[in-house]
């Protein structure tokens, strides 16, 4: 474990908690893409199948359970408890256009052709594009609540910090996972546009609104 990976995990945890609290406190999921949240729940489910069979550390197990629990709780709040506030008209990104190609790629490009490893690879590829429905929704509505932009910033920073973690592990642990690195680069690049808006607008106290 290094400081960059820990910072990344804490940033990821913060994002997940901020989103869950936002929906719970405001009793509304307006502006939140339910499709992205379903994709994240799928990412954690396919990545953490070895939760009970492959013990890494108490930290690893606890964090995986928190991620899984929060992901499903968020999906539940969006599609059941606060369904009336779900903005389905703007959450129209065709998620199947992500899941199918990612599924095919996971079969073709992986470290080992075994069920667990293919599902892990699927989760890595899917995570890199899972935020697209959310970013697409914001571009359609033309704006985002400030709390939602903080959620997205923390979520985007988590994988950016992981990129630094992989550089660190390459030099100090001789660890190198090309699949995770390439997917992590794609994932972080998708946030660049948002990062620019977040830093130039939200951090200046303005509301994030896109030129519609």
């Amino acid at each position: 474990m290094n400081i960059f990976r820990l910072a990344g995990d804490l940033s990821h945890l913060a994002a997940i908690i901020v989103l869950l609290l936002k929906i719970w406190k405001t009793r509304s999921c307006a502006g939140i893409s339910g499709k992205s949240q379903i994709l994240f729940a799928l990412v954690f489910t396919t990545r953490y199948l070895d939760l009970f069979t492959n013990f890494i550390s108490p930290y690893n197990t606890v964090m995986k359970m928190i991620y899984l629990g929060c992901a499903y709780a968020t999906v539940y709040l969006i599609y059941m408890k606060f369904k009336a506030t779900y903005d389905g008209n703007h959450d129209t990104f065709r998620a199947e256009f992500l899941v199918v190609p990612v599924g095919g790629l996971a079969f073709l490009v992986n470290h080992e052709f075994s069920p667990l490893e293919i599902l892990w690879t699927f989760s890595i590829y899917l995570e890199s594009v899972a935020i697209l429905p959310q970013l697409f929704m914001i571009s359609k509505t033309g704006e985002a609540e400030t709390i939602t932009t903080h959620y997205l910033f923390a979520l985007g920073m988590y994988r950016a910090l992981y990129l630094i973690n992989w550089i660190w592990r390459y030099y100090f642990e001789n660890f190198f996972d090309l699949i995770a690195i390439v997917a992590g680069c794609v994932q972080t690049i998708l946030y660049c546009d948002f990062f620019y808006l977040y830093i130039t607008k939200v951090l200046q106290g303005k509301k994030l609104s896109l030129p519609a």
Partner: peptide, 10 residues
Amino acid sequence: RQLMLNHDEL
């Protein structure tokens, strides 16, 4: 190589 498949990251 085994390290690689023993994914220790979240």
